[in-house]
Design a binder for these strands. Structure first.
Lengths: 397, 397
DNA sequence: GACTTTCGTTCGAGTCTCGTACTTAATGAT
DNA sequence: ATCATTAAGTACGAGACTCGAACGAAAGTC
C-alpha cells in the first residue's frame, strides 16, 4: 500500500535548488512564452542575477536561444532586452500509443512543437512489434544524431499500475506486465513510462488541446469502451493502484442495457460505440472515428438518428453530472467518436448536466470537443515524458 | 479560471531549501516516530551534519526535544544516540466545526496529540457567535500564553471556494462570504482557513483515524446529507472551484426517490438519514448519530429493519462502486450516522461493490468505519492548519 | 550631445549542504 | 583495568547557489 511517506520525500541540496529554479524558468517560458531576462525575473520572482546564470546554463545546454529583437516592438524607454525562448534544437520527447486497430507516434520538442506525428493501422490487436518498428522509425526520422531523446511514454488502453511500467489488465491488446516498457526502452534507449490512454489524452488536452492551461479538467474518450482522464491542479489523478478514471462500467444510463463485461447498466452499454450503433441499426466500419463520421452524415438526413444521438447525449450528460459532482472540473473535453458527432451529443448532454447540477453555486463545467483527434494519446505520452523536466526532477545537460 | 501557472511557482532561495529540509525532518518524526539524528539522516537522505544543524534549530524553537535514552533499548555496539521527538510544548493548531446542530473544537499539538476536544449543541443553525465563543474558550483553555497558535481551520457543511476562505453556498448554516473567516481570525489572531466538513473529516481520517498513512482514501459522511472527501497522494482533491466531493446529488440508487433538492434519484434520497428513517417508519431524534444508534438497536430485534438497512447498504455500495471506478481509493471510510449502523450497512455495501468492480485486476477498496466520530471535522481542520508547516511552506521560529 | 531609463552582468556577501576528520560514549576482548 | 572497536554527534572547510548593489551597455529623449 502506498503511504503518504513516499511523497515529497527527497532531500534538497543546493544543486536541487538550482534544478528547481531552472525548472521554474523553463515553465515560465513554456507557458507564458519568450521573455527577456528582466521579464523572467519579474515573472518568477528570482533575482535578475540568478536568472542570468540560469539562462546562461540553459543556453549552453541548447535548451534556450536568444531571439532576434523584433523590430516591430513598441519603442520602450531604456535599453531593450533580448528575448529568450525555448529552443527546439536539442531536446525531444517521444510518445507512442498502442491501440487495438492502430499504433501511433508523436515527437515533441522542448517548445511544445510537434515535430512528427504519425499513425499506422495494424492487423492484429496489441501488435507490439509494429509499435517498436514505429518507434525506431520515428527515432531515426525525427531524432537522429542531432537531438537528445529525453524520455518516452507509451499509452495503452488498459489498467497500468502506479509505477508507470506494469500493465495490470489490458484485454483489448493482450499485453501485460513490463514487457512492453522493456521492449520500447530497448528500441529507444531512453527511460520509458507506460500510461493509460485516457490519462495521456487528458494530459495532452490540458497542455496542447481544448483545455490548454486549465488546471482542473476531465477528459472523456469514446471508442468501443469509455474511459476518462482526470487532471487536478495540473496533475493527473492516478488513484491508489493507478486505475483512476475507469468510468466505463459505472452504473449509469439505461439500467437494463447489457454490457460486454457481462453485467447490466454499465455506462458503456449506454453510450459506447456499440450501444450507439445498436440504437440506429448500423454496423461498424474500419474504425470508431470513421463509423461516427458516417453516423453524423446520416443524422443530417434522418430525424430518428438525431433522436437516438440525443438519447446518447442525455446519458453522457447524466454520467458527466456524476463526474462533475465528484471532481468539479472547469472543463470537460470529449474525445474519440464523440468528436464527429459534435453538438448532436453535446447539446443534450449540456441540458442533462444542467438539470443535474448539485448546487446553485456550482457552475457547469464547460463542455468542449477534443481538438487533437487520434493523436491525443501519443501526444500526451510525449508531453508526460517532458513533465519530469518541467517539474525539475531531471536536469537538462 | 485557475491555470497551471499558479501551481508550484515560487522561487527557491537557500532559506527555502532549509525550510524544505526542515519540513522533511518534521514529517519523518511525525510519521515514523522519534529517532536519533543518525537515524534521521538515514531516513531522510540528508547528511548527518545537516540533520544536526536542523535538529539544533528545531530544538531551539522548542519544536523538538531530546528524549531520555530508553534503558530497555537493545544493547547496541557503538555510542548510543539520543532519540529526538517532536515536542508538544510550544506549537499548537486549532480546528473548529460549525454545523447545524452543534459546534466543536479540537486543539492539536505538533506531535499530533489532541490537547483539547469539545462539542457543544447549538440552538439555531449557523450560530457563528457560539463558534467564536468556543474558539475563544479553547484558546484560553489550551493555548494560553505558554503556546503559539500556528494556524486554525474551520469546517463547514457547504461549498467553500478554492481560496479556503469564501463560503459560496451553505444553506444549512446560512453563512456565506468571508465573514466567518474574518470573525474567527479576529477572535484567535492567527491565520484561518475555511474548508468543507467532509474534506476536513477525510483529512482527519487519513492522518489520525481509520486511514492513517493511506495516500489514496475516500471518506463518505452521512448526516442529513451525504458528502465525500477525496484524498489523492495524501492531498485533498479540491476541484476547480473547490467543490469536489459533492456526491449527495449524484443520480444513484432508487431513481424515483424524491430528494430535498427538488429532483429525483439523488443518492442522498436513497441513503440519506431521512430516506433511511422513511424506510423503517421512524422519526428523527436530537441528532443524526443518536437516531442511528436507536435504529441499530431496533435492528437487533426487527428483521424488517435489517432488510431495510441492507437495501441502504446496497445503494451505498452502488455509489461507492461509482466513486471507486473514478478515483481508485485504497480505503473508503464511512462516517456520520453510518458508524452506529456498522456492518448492517457495510456488509451489503461490500457485496454490491464487489459485483460492480470494473476489472478483475481491480482490488476492492477496503471499507472501514470512522474512528473519530463527531470530532473528525474539527480534528481535520486542525491538522490542515498544520499542513503548511509539514509542507515546508511556513517556518517554526 | 547630455540625460534618462532600462537591461544584463559582475562581484562580494550570506546561506545552506556535504564530506571528512575528530571527539565522545558505549561495548567487548585481552 | 585497559585497549580496541563501533557508532553518534560535532566542527570545519569546501563547494554551490541566490541575492542585492554597483556598474557598464544600449537604447530613446530633450
Amino acid at each position: 500500500m502506498t503511504t503518504t511517506a513516499d511523497r515529497a520525500g527527497r532531500p534538497g541540496s543546493t544543486e536541487g535548488l538550482r534544478r528547481q529554479n531552472t525548472s521554474l524558468v523553463l515553465r515560465s517560458l513554456r507557458q507564458l512564452g519568450p521573455a527577456t531576462r528582466a521579464e523572467l525575473a519579474k515573472r518568477t520572482g528570482l533575482a535578475k542575477a540568478t536568472v542570468g546564470v540560469i539562462v546562461a546554463a540553459l543556453e549552453a545546454a541548447d535548451a534556450v536561444t536568444e531571439l532576434e529583437r523584433t523590430g516591430s516592438a513598441v519603442a520602450a524607454r531604456g535599453r531593450p532586452g533580448v528575448p529568450v525562448a525555448l529552443s527546439g534544437r536539442r531536446f525531444l520527447a517521444l510518445g507512442l500509443e498502442l491501440n487495438v486497430d492502430y499504433v501511433s507516434v508523436a515527437v515533441l520538442d522542448l517548445t511544445g512543437t510537434v515535430r512528427l506525428s504519425a499513425s499506422r493501422p495494424v492487423t492484429g490487436p496489441g501488435d507490439v512489434s509494429a509499435l517498436v518498428a514505429l518507434a525506431r522509425w520515428a527515432r531515426a526520422e525525427a531524432v537522429g544524431e542531432a537531438h537528445d531523446l529525453v524520455a518516452a511514454g507509451v499509452a495503452v488502453p488498459g489498467l497500468v499500475r502506479g509505477d508507470n511500467r506494469t500493465i495490470a489488465w489490458a484485454p483489448n491488446i493482450g499485453v501485460t506486465g513490463e514487457s512492453l516498457a522493456a521492449a520500447v526502452e530497448d528500441a529507444l534507449g531512453c527511460p520509458v513510462r507506460v500510461s493509460n490512454d485516457a490519462n495521456c489524452a487528458a494530459y495532452a488536452e490540458a497542455h496542447h488541446g481544448a483545455a490548454v492551461g486549465v488546471a482542473h479538467a476531465l477528459y472523456l474518450t469514446g471508442t468501443v469502451g469509455i474511459g476518462a482522464g482526470i487532471v487536478d491542479r495540473g496533475e493527473l489523478v492516478r488513484g491508489g493502484a493507478g486505475f483512476a478514471g475507469e468510468v466505463g462500467h459505472m452504473p449509469i444510463g439505461d439500467s437494463t442495457a447489457r454490457c460486454g463485461c457481462g453485467r447490466q447498466g454499465c455506462w458503456e452499454a449506454s453510450i459506447g460505440l456499440h450501444a450507439v450503433l445498436a440504437r440506429v441499426g448500423m454496423t461498424e466500419v474500419e474504425t470508431p472515428l470513421a463509423t461516427a463520421a458516417l453516423l453524423a452524415g446520416r443524422a443530417d438526413r434522418e430525424p430518428a438518428v438525431v433522436d437516438a444521438l440525443a438519447e446518447v447525449g442525455h446519458s453522457v450528460g447524466l454520467g458527466l453530472a456524476m463526474l462533475a459532482s465528484v471532481l468539479d472540473p472547469e472543463v470537460v473535453v470529449l474525445g474519440g467518436f464523440f468528436v464527429p458527432l459534435g453538438e448532436r451529443v453535446l447539446a443534450p448532454a449540456r441540458a442533462a448536466l444542467d438539470a443535474r447540477l448539485a448546487a446553485p453555486a456550482q457552475v457547469r463545467p464547460e463542455l468542449r470537443l477534443s481538438t487533437l483527434g487520434i493523436q491525443a494519446a501519443a501526444l500526451g505520452a510525449a508531453e508526460q515524458a517532458f513533465s519530469r523536466v518541467f517539474a525539475g526532477d531531471v536536469e537538462l545537460a
